[in-house]
Design a protein around this nucleic acid. Structure first.
Lengths: 337, 337
DNA sequence: CTCGTTAACTAAAGCGGTATAGTCAATGGC
DNA sequence: GCCATTGACTATACCGCTTTAGTTAACGAG
């Protein structure tokens, strides 16, 4: 059965014009309820599906949203979080027969080049912008390209649509917990300071540590790789006054840090408590399992999808929604110092 | 909206017809070299890009290939391998301005439904088919849908295009290595037996173990989740005669198995050697690091991409290429029993 | 009974390319 | 020097769907 049925085939079968079929299938006025029902029935029977390209060409939607991750191929491995987000997005979007165009690129420059390509090829109707930087060039460029986007993780200060969680509150939860256990000397293995979320966490830790009477929480920045996570841990533990607790910005670095501690003979959690800012299988397969912040990442992806659908439907919306604050899941990697 | 140049704009500027511009841009005869040069120059200056939808509508390509992964959201976590494949594919394909449409779905049924959607919406020109099953329903359906595909990991027995590695040889490498270390009792924590690659590995282990004079290598099947990997390990180690070495079909399960061993007080590698069939960051962040089979997954993705491009250009090709056999990387998780 | 309105359609013009069928002048064989 | 061929283009017909501008026929108001 070679050729898919087109709107014209349906029109012929029902005995109306192609235009009427289009009206009926898109739920817009111009056909009687009776005719509409007959058309829909015929479309169902003939197993008709819209031809995406034809729709997109008509000047309307491409039926896809984009997600670009800028990652060095070597630093690859921390995509657990985005894999879950993607799953949540796709489940929500495919119900409306939207696709997610996901692509991995090397850096922000390549990311921007890709946006230009997508814009001119009309591949996507909107984007999810992630890993926002302190001085991010992307929003301005996307505005210029007229590609609407939702940001993930950035509070919608600029009146732009975004889905975000309260990073600072999450960090405070951790600090309070560690302080309650009796820790005084807490360190933080952070991501690159260029990222806004990193900056927010670093600031929150510092401020709240002082407030709680701990030693000023110090943050060490890394590139999020397991190698730098391990190196940072090694450096921290080799100090004359090593921290009694380390907070890691990602589960991958936390696991790597745990490995280093074991290697150095530093017992976890007796001599060192470890907390991860991210959750995934990883925190559960290492031994001891890691205390971490957990959130429903799948649901977050679904929220993002809803937000994107709304944005695509009406590019003028500036709706910003706050996702649940990650909650602390206590496992075996934390204890009194 | 953004006044993106069309072929007609170029035609007007150069002073020729749109058809001539199309000929020039697609490198086909019908224009003089001189005119062609002028057209290309103008297109470059005006920053012209083909409108994907328009091309796809013309009956030609959608400019995308698809990759669907059937995964239970809860079993998510073993996507390292496919993330790397994806990266390799995208780097190769985006040079030809092809996109990869990747989607996560729950099961094979949903996967097939998605293929039907994609076929009727003309979203993709070809597919990468992964995780082939012993009696796989997908090839027949894709034939019916006229969606060309390349299989990954399955030897191209049926004259279909595929990119595959020698699973049996890889397993034999492991068995030889363990036998040389002096192991007699080797177990295998495998994936679901429904997968062809699992079946091949199970058979290869069994045959080669006997050949080498080991106890008949036994395989335990799992769903690839860390939970079942852990459970299988626990069961194996609780036997009166526990194996002295366990081969895991995935790095995730190997890491989970290592966790169980540590928990049970079974020392690795002294009392138990662990080998993982897959490599990723995971094998390097646990302690001890895992001996594993390693391969250049990124390159594999690139090979897949080449194969797909060839297939899309000529759907009749049945070219099958063999990728390098994974090689054994010895780390700290294996030793003499 | 006539006119204006509206519901329910039909007709037709794109959207941006591709592909095919001309058109026209230059070329070359005999 | 005439006719056939070829090269270089132009004109045009789609591709499948959306959308706007008609076109009817029915209906109600005056």
């Amino acid at each position: 059965m070679g050729n898919r049925p087109t709107i014209a085939d349906i029109a012929k079968r029902v005995g109306v014009s192609p235009g009427a079929v289009s009206f009926a299938l898109n739920g817009r006025p111009g056909v009687s309820e009776q005719t509409r029902a007959r058309i829909l029935e015929a479309a169902r029977e003939m197993n008709w599906r819209p031809h995406r390209a034809a729709r997109a060409l008509g000047g309307s939607q491409a039926g896809a949203v984009g997600l670009v991750l800028a990652r060095d191929p070597r630093t690859l491995g921390s995509e657990q979080f985005y894999t879950q987000i993607l799953y949540g997005m796709q489940d929500t979007l495919s119900a409306r027969s939207f696709a997610v165009q996901m692509q991995l690129v090397r850096d922000t420059e390549a990311e921007i080049a890709l946006y230009r390509d997508w814009a001119s090829e009309h591949r996507v109707d909107g984007l999810l912008l992630v890993d926002l930087q302190v001085d991010d060039p992307r929003p301005a460029i996307l505005d210029e390209l007229r590609l609407p986007f939702v940001t993930l993780g950035s509070t919608g200060e600029e009146g732009r649509p975004s889905v975000w969680a309260d990073d600072a509150a999450a960090m405070i939860t951790i600090v309070d917990y560690l302080a309650a256990l009796g820790h005084r000397h807490v360190a933080h293995v952070a991501g690159p300071p260029i990222y806004r979320h990193t900056a927010r966490r670093v600031a929150a830790l510092h401020e709240h540590a002082i407030l709680r009477g701990l030693d000023a929480g110090e943050s060490v920045s890394t590139d999020f790789s397991d190698a730098q996570g391990a190196a940072a841990t090694r450096a921290l533990l080799s100090r004359p006054q090593p921290p009694t607790a380390i907070i890691y910005d990602s589960d991958l670095m936390a696991a790597a840090g745990l490995g280093v501690a074991l290697e150095l003979g530093v017992r976890v959690p007796q001599a060192l408590s470890i907390v991860s800012f991210d959750d995934s299988v990883l925190t559960r397969i290492v031994h001891p399992q890691l205390t971490c912040l957990s959130r429903d990442t799948y649901a977050l992806g679904a929220q993002v999808a809803e937000s994107l659908l709304q944005l695509v439907a009406d590019p003028a919306t500036g709706h910003s929604i706050q996702a649940e604050t990650p909650r602390l899941v206590v496992r075996g990697s934390t204890a009194r110092p």
